[in-house]
Design a protein around this nucleic acid. Structure first.
Lengths: 222, 222
DNA sequence: GTCTATATTGTGATAGAC
DNA sequence: GTCTATCACAATATAGAC
């Protein structure tokens, strides 16, 4: 809620204003990603941003709003791409390939995102509705059914042609996303169970990028 | 830390003592599962248990200890079964089948567990080490490598026989677990993206129980 | 063992100077 | 816009009666 009265400020301030708000948001993202909404401290965000705690309230009024802004920012980077990729006008195999590469690349550069998203949706199922809506752009209750219908049509063509076993588009999508996202969400577990350090994990993901498309396509062969 | 001085208490108290500690633990599990360690309130746990807040400290000393007890209890129900199933002396196909049915059944009755585990490991990676250790029984750094080695041997036999494409045991296990667990961890998301209510989700899982074993075996056919 | 206070800190939020 | 100082209350934890 920063007043947008910057018409006449041709001095040194305007640049700084925006930079500050952005720095706070960046700092908030870092902290919320690691600690979650409930575990995050305004104090830590302020320190991370290199500003005073009062400034957080000046720009975002409350912790809830700041946390909401961060969640929406992150969600809006994840979900539209999913819709976009699944809705593209390309073959099913191409969609599989693109989705896998896209998600594995994105999450490799945002290791904490899957755990954060799952955690937030788990602990705050209420506020999700509106955020996903605004993140996707249109109401997913409208958007997704048509997307799934088209996907189902594409699957049925392959099934009729005898090149694929039948599967509902819902199971199709979940299988695909599960294989891409879960390893990141469960990374702390894998460190222990499979004894992976950071380097080993990244190698594991690289290997996955090559193998997953074939794994998934084979899974649906008749 | 309740004193175990129950030698002479043949009166009406002993039963009540244990019942209380257990009721607190049960209540704590419910609350921590939904709110997470950071979001949970001692007050809410006390209310849920039908006792006073002071009693929580009498039995468990601090929130951290209570939360630790809950996490360990839950973890100790999940991880040993994984090790047990993967380590059993049965065919690879049998292991796949058993693991899928076991996890889908278990999680259907404990819908919040996957989200909780992922969330806790994500926000408190420090304390995980010891808890997993005590949950599995022996140090997973010792246990898991031998288990993976045996699994790898079993896979290689199938590969040599020409009935399976090569895959590392690590990727094998992660693929399997991803397909089983992720749908539960991402359930709040699916409600929105796929428009599933509770009944639809349970039907989705039932369907999955039938299809996943074949999906997974097909994925590894040459 | 269980309760009713109460102490003690932690933490989000505001007031007001600059 | 940014800071220091402080408020108000939420939340963990303890004291002490019963």
């Amino acid at each position: 809620m920063p007043k947008t009265t910057r018409q006449r400020s041709t001095a040194k301030k305007p640049v700084r204003e925006e930079a500050t708000e952005q720095r706070i948001l960046d700092a908030a993202r870092v902290v919320f990603l690691r600690r979650g909404t409930a575990g995050a401290r305004m104090q830590e965000i302020a320190r991370q941003a290199g500003v005073n705690q009062a400034l957080l309230h000046y720009y975002f009024r409350s912790k809830a709003r700041l946390s909401g802004a961060v969640f929406q920012q992150i969600a809006s980077r994840i979900f539209p791409t999913l819709v976009q990729t699944l809705g593209a006008d390309v073959s099913l195999d191409e969609k599989i390939e693109r989705l896998i590469v896209m998600y594995l690349d994105t999450m490799s550069q945002n290791l904490f995102v899957p755990g954060y998203i799952i955690s937030e949706l788990h602990h705050h199922p209420e506020r999700v509705q509106q955020l996903i809506s605004s993140a996707i752009g249109s109401d997913p209750r409208i958007m997704m059914p048509s997307l799934l219908k088209n996907l189902g049509k594409q699957i049925n063509e392959r099934v009729s042609a005898g090149t694929m076993r039948p599967i509902t588009p819902q199971q199709f999508v979940i299988n695909l996303i599960s294989l891409c996202i879960f390893p990141f969400a469960a990374r702390p577990m894998l460190s222990i169970i499979l004894g992976m350090d950071d380097a080993a994990f990244m190698h594991f993901i690289e290997q996955r990028k090559k193998q997953l498309p074939e794994f998934f396509r084979a899974a649906l062969r008749p």
